[in-house]
Lab assay of single mutants.
Amino acid sequence: LQAFIKTLTGKTFTVEMEPSDTIENLKAKIQDKEGIPPDQQRLIFAGKQLEDGRTLSDYNIQKESTLHLVL
């Protein structure tokens, strides 16, 4: 599935991932794409901060969901 990552500066980019991917995997993909170390990334979806060990499906993240990236 493709999801949108929106930063506080208003920049939006897309990442490809599977519902079974962990938040940790997602942070690694963001690092590959944007060069931001995972330990500096905080991802917010539906008002909740996402925990590394959980999966996208745990948070009911669907295709074309928008996640907010806070540094």
Rank of each mutant, 00 (worst) to 15 (best):
S65H: 10
I36N: 02
H68E: 12
D58M: 04
D39G: 11
G35R: 05
D39N: 12
K29Y: 07
I30R: 00
T22R: 07
I36H: 10
G10F: 03
G35K: 06
T12I: 13
T14Q: 09
G10R: 03
H68V: 14
D58F: 12
M17C: 12
E51R: 06
G47M: 03
Q2M: 13
N25Q: 14
D32A: 14
E18M: 14
Q49H: 12
Q40I: 11
Q31V: 04
H68N: 08
T12Y: 09
K48W: 06
Q41P: 01
L71W: 08
K27L: 02
E24K: 13
K48E: 13
I36E: 01
K48P: 02
T66E: 09
E64M: 10
L69N: 00
T9Y: 14
R54I: 05
S20M: 11
V15G: 01
V70H: 09
T66S: 06
E18Y: 14
E16S: 10
D32Q: 14
T55V: 08
K11C: 08
V15K: 00
F45D: 01
I36A: 03
D21K: 03
H68G: 04
D58Y: 14
I36V: 08
G47F: 04
T12F: 10
L50Y: 01
T7I: 10
L67N: 02
E51C: 08
T7Y: 14
F4S: 07
T9I: 07
T7G: 06
S57L: 12
R42D: 05
R42E: 09
Q62A: 12
V70C: 08
P37M: 05
G53R: 09
L1A: 05
A28F: 12
L43I: 12
T7E: 03
Y59V: 04
S57K: 11
Q40C: 10
F13L: 06
G53I: 06
R54W: 10
E18T: 10
D58T: 04
G35H: 06
T66Y: 08
L56Q: 01
D39P: 06
P38I: 15
E24F: 14
T55Y: 07
E18C: 10
I44V: 09
P37E: 06
I44R: 05
T22V: 04
E18R: 13
T55M: 10
T12C: 10
G35W: 02
